[in-house]
């Protein structure tokens, strides 16, 4: 069971309050104008599936209810950072520097 820092609650809380919500920074293409089959396929199905730092989404479902973003190392299960939805994607090199 992990501890997860909720950027909205500003607290580090037990994983049981949270729900995983897939890879982060996958924006839904604006479908009101033409979107190619390939672009839509990528949006729906294509994921990085990285071994290592992974940009992903969580929801504080049994808490403030907010979706937020995180970078978690899929090897060590360690969170490098969590940040609010809509915030800029943090540079991995900065995160790795900081985690040292």
């Amino acid at each position: 069971m992990l501890l997860i820092h909720c950027p909205y609650c500003a607290q580090t809380l037990p994983e049981l309050e949270f729900t995983y919500a897939g890879e982060a920074h996958i924006a839904r293409p604006d479908a009101s104008s033409p979107v190619s089959d390939e672009e839509w396929r990528n949006f729906l199905f294509i994921r990085t599936n990285v071994k290592g730092p992974h940009y992903e989404r969580w929801r504080h479902s049994h808490g403030c209810g907010r979706f937020f973003n995180a970078v978690r190392d899929t090897v060590s299960d360690r969170f490098l950072i969590t940040y609010k939805a809509g915030e800029k994607r943090p540079e991995l090199s900065d995160l790795l520097e900081k985690s040292k």
Partner: peptide
């Protein structure tokens, strides 16, 4: 409740989980 209850100050609260239930 998996939260650290000691960290919930008197006069405050939270939505949390109790045996899987919100």
């Amino acid at each position: 409740c998996p939260r650290d209850i000691d960290k919930i100050a008197i006069g405050t609260g939270c939505r949390t989980v109790f045996d899987g239930v919100s």
